[in-house]
Nucleic acid binder design. Structure first.
Length: 873
RNA sequence: GGGCGAUUAGCUCAGUCGGUUAGAGCGCUUCUCUGAUAAGGAAGAGGUCCCUGGUUCGAGUCCAGGAUCGCCCA
């Protein structure tokens, strides 16, 4: 033992020692043949700096694998990096000053993707440094990377499997679409970007063809009016013809008062069915390719009278309901199998095409961006100038925005590739039932409810930096899904070093489809479709793709699927938690994880969400430099249940340091100080004396805590486990040591041995929580193994068996002492002043307990003897 | 509008199966101790357990409705 008493235990020297002794590697090797306990790393993207919330998830990803390792399992911890996707592309676009897909293409996909490949690891050094410094043991040298050829090949295999089951299809739908990124988004991406905004809503009068009456429609998206081809009414809804301000208007009866106020005179009431089939003047705006005429009123089962007018303007290119209603009513030029023919005057970049002109036809709106607020104002002014505007009203609602570039999304008719997840919806729900969620309500609450509303996964992205969709297609429309690089090479005769765009786009196949009238082979050239896939599919494929399975590593994958444990923030319910489950259900019909810990959000001290724009983010390095990594970890583990979220404050971390880490350190310091001072005496005290009741109590309390900590950690309750350790440390420091001080001054070897045993056990209990201070204490007091992290968790026979009766007796004795000290204070007799006796009113069990520990009570109260009287007296 | 969650002392949080006078830490006041602790100990001030109703001998806890906040969805 050395007299190491500097600092608070969280020493960079500890890290150095781990490196020298290769402790992480040794901890894995020590469990080489043991039963595996499987952890999956949810891959972060390393193109930005890690923040406090990353520290949160990384320390929770660390504690359970450390604990399970100490319990005897082999816990491989393969790191991972998410490398593809829009977040990366957008960062590169900004760096290069590119503003659109056209600019990217003229810059060159090859060079653009090269920049993406570089950018994705821009901060990887800082991630690695932080990961190491906070004590997150993760195999970073052998991390999987979603951009690797092996990874992509496994993803292709998965897609080919899904295609073989008939669950991959090209669908023609109205999709949430980011006009800036030029791509459709999946529902879970849409879910990431809702924001509250105020949009102008307008009530528009449309004159009927067969009378001078007008129907009144309402929309929050005036920009969709040039795409209008019909108006829908609810067949079951009652409508009213009313006289108002010299005009005759038609709207739902139930909304007359809400929309028009009191000044409306109802002339007639009619069911919606009476309106269906009548025509109104169309188009609303002058469209270069449409001559003035009429458009029909059609039925729409989605029409409600909750807001608006009960008459809904239909622009099939910009709304799913609109699309379906228009198809059903055959309204407008529509071919449901070819959405290119849906009437759509908006270009893929979100601007109007040349057809859109002002109502009088004199000005062109070509090139105007549809979500530009000024465009809405111009359109409204145009409507007003031509007597079509009834009124405008600002409408506050939450509206989806692109989760990465923050552009408001539009709903837009286009072709996309889908995975028919709805085919396995029930199976996903059943797989979900096998998962232990922490907290438990996620299973049937948030996640269960989300699964119930499952829709097909919009998989494709018309982008550049991603896993290419391995679908080749010939001019006849025959498709081939490629499931491996071998297969591609066999069919094309070409081999690739890199299967990313643009290289993979150059590979041509010959169509082998045997569909001709005589059964002849098609034989036409096949080109790859242009899309890449949703990055969430990449990360969701990691259970097998990280091992390049099924191309190799059969055994490794079999052993490591499903995971025993994953842990991410709550927002991953619709992200990684979902993509893992969906892919796993599609391919293996089972859940890919057994236990999930969901972490909450980190808020600032005022309860505000942390964001860069508010400037209230917490810089992890600052916390580590001020308080140390153990303190940071301890705060996250013990300040509250992690799923409830945190109100982050440095003071709270400081409090944890002072109350727990400093207390532990000074107890250890005390031991080291006196053990060092008494080293000669201790060295030749072969004849150790009997343990006192106090010694046995300390050991029993320690054993009790070890049991409790193990039980709580088995239940993924680090909070209660950590708090139990803190209570133990307080008992040892403020009771065991305080009551035993004289023995330490006098060099009593039994006291030293007892305290040492407790401290070593505490170090082991604490090792998963605060790996630095735990190892420092262990290494100095024991050191029989190169690190505490190579030890077994102290739930075996390291400690003598518990003595529960003694624990209970001590609790009674301490309560007695508390009352005695209170009585002294009340009588203003200082503790220094010895007293002849303390009179204790107690009988039965209580009295026996105090009697047993009489000496301790007498010493603490500074009385010569304790005298008992029965409660009856 | 729907789903999920939260609301307990000035602050941060516990509160088990429905059961004594609702607890801890921090902060505050007074006293005390001090040969490890910017520590410890004792006493005190501080509570409409978000509100309303219900079930019950008994509700912080269970049920219903509402309010506020957060997240997710439409």
């Amino acid at each position: 033992m050395q007299e190491r008493i500097d600092g608070a235990g969280d020493l960079p020297a500890t890290l150095e020692r781990w490196r020298e002794r290769d402790v992480f590697g040794a901890s894995l090797r020590a469990r080489a043949g043991a039963e595996p306990w499987v952890f999956y790393e949810g891959p972060p993207t390393a193109n930005g700096r890690p923040g406090a919330h990353h520290v949160l998830s990384r320390v929770f990803k660390d504690i359970y694998p450390r604990y399970k390792t100490m319990r005897g399992y082999r816990v491989d911890r393969k790191g991972g990096w998410d490398c593809h996707g829009l977040p990366v592309e957008i960062a590169v676009e900004q760096k290069l000053g590119l503003k659109s897909k056209a600019e990217i293409e003229s810059y060159g996909i090859e060079e653009f993707n090269r920049r993406c490949r570089e950018s994705v690891f821009e901060y990887v050094e800082e991630w690695n440094r932080l990961t190491e410094r906070i004590g997150f043991w993760l195999d970073l040298d052998d991390a999987y990377r979603t951009l690797d050829e092996s990874y992509i090949e496994s993803v292709w295999w998965a897609l080919a499997q899904i295609a073989e089951k008939g669950l991959l299809y090209e669908g023609h739908k109205v999709v949430p679409y980011c006009p800036r990124c030029g791509t459709a988004l999946s529902s879970h991406e849409v879910a990431l970007g809702y924001r509250d905004v105020v949009d102008p809503s307008v009530y528009v009068k449309l004159r009927l063809l067969d009378s001078d009456e007008s129907i009144l429609i309402w929309t929050t998206t005036p920009w969709t009016l040039p795409g209008n081809v019909a108006v829908a009414v609810g067949p079951e809804i009652e409508y009213a013809k009313v006289r108002y301000g010299g005009e005759t208007l038609i709207l739902a009866s139930g909304l007359v008062e809400k929309v028009l106020g009191g000044g409306a005179e109802v002339l007639q009431r009619m069911p919606g069915t009476e309106l269906i089939g009548r025509g109104y003047r169309s188009p609303i705006f002058a469209m270069a390719d449409r001559s003035p005429g009429g458009a029909p009123i059609i039925a729409g089962d989605f029409v409600t009278t909750e807001d608006g007018t009960g008459l809904v303007h239909i622009a099939p290119a910009f709304g799913e309901d609109d699309f379906r209603a228009a198809v059903a009513a055959k309204a407008g030029p529509i071919d449901p199998d070819n959405p290119g023919t849906v009437y759509n005057p908006v270009r893929p970049d979100g601007t109007y095409d040349a057809r859109v002109r002002s109502i009088d036809g004199e000005r062109s709106y070509e090139g105007r961006f549809v979500k530009d607020p000024q465009l809405a104002e111009d359109l409204i002014a145009d409507l007003d100038a031509h007597g079509l505007l009834f009124k405008r009203q600002d409408y506050e609602h939450s509206y989806p925005h692109c989760w990465r570039c923050a552009t408001p999304l539009i709903y837009y008719a286009k072709a996309s590739w889908y995975i028919r997840t709805t085919a396995v919806k029930e199976r996903m729900a059943q797989a979900n039932q096998t998962v232990d969620w922490h907290p438990g309500h996620i299973r049937d609450g948030r996640f269960g409810e989300w699964l119930k509303g499952n829709v097909d996964w919009a998989l494709s992205r018309e982008r550049y930096w991603g896993t290419p969709l391995p679908v080749w297609r010939c001019p006849e429309g025959h498709t081939k899904v490629i499931g491996s690089f071998d297969e591609l090479q066999r069919l094309s005769g070409e081999s690739l070093q890199d299967h990313h765009r643009p290289y993979v786009d150059r590979i041509e196949l010959r169509c082998a489809h045997e569909g001709g009238p005589e059964g002849e082979v098609c034989g036409q050239p096949m080109r790859r479709v242009p899309e890449v896939i949703d990055v969430w599919f990449d990360s969701g494929a990691m259970p097998f793709a990280q091992h390049h399975w099924p191309v190799e590593n059969d055994e490794r994958f079999a052993e490591r699927f499903p995971a025993d444990f994953i842990c991410e923030a709550l927002d991953q319910t619709r992200g990684w938690f979902y993509s893992l489950l969906a892919i796993s259900t599609l391919l293996f019909d089972k859940a890919p994880y057994r236990n999930v810990v969901c972490l909450g959000l980190i808020l600032d001290a005022e309860g505000q969400k942390m964001s860069k724009s508010k400037g209230n983010t917490v810089e992890p390095w600052q916390v580590i430099d001020t308080h140390g990594a153990d303190a940071f970890r301890w705060y996250f583990f013990t300040s509250k249940q992690p799923w409830d979220g945190y109100r982050f404050s440095e003071e709270a971390i400081g409090e944890g340091v002072r109350l727990f880490l400093k207390q532990l350190w000074s107890t250890y310091f005390f031991y080291v100080l006196y053990a060092h001072a008494n080293r000669d005496a201790l060295a030749d005290s072969a004849a150790a004396g009997e343990m006192s009741e106090l010694d046995r109590w300390a050991l029993s309390r320690t054993a009790a805590t070890a049991q409790l900590v193990a039980e709580r950690l088995d239940d993924y309750d680090a909070t209660a486990a950590g708090r139990a350790i803190a209570e133990l440390v307080d008992d040892i420091s403020n009771w065991y040591v305080r009551r035993s001080r004289r023995r330490f001054w006098d060099g009593d070897p039994v006291a030293f041995e007892t305290l040492r045993s407790c401290l070593i056990a505490i170090a082991k209990l604490l090792a998963p929580f605060c790996p630095f201070i735990a190892d420092e204490i262990y290494d100095n007091l024991d050191g029989s193994l190169p690190s505490v992290h190579l030890c077994d968790f102290p739930v075996g026979d390291e400690l003598p068996p518990r003595e529960q009766e003694l624990e209970a007796a001590m609790a009674t004795a301490r309560e007695t002492v508390k009352l005695g000290l209170g009585a002294r204070a009340k009588a203003k007799v200082k503790i220094r002043q010895p007293l002849a006796e303390a009179v204790v009113v107690a009988d039965g069990r209580e009295r026996a307990a105090i009697e047993r520990l009489k000496g301790i009570v007498e010493e603490e109260l500074n009385v010569r003897r304790v005298r008992f009287v029965d409660a009856a007296e």
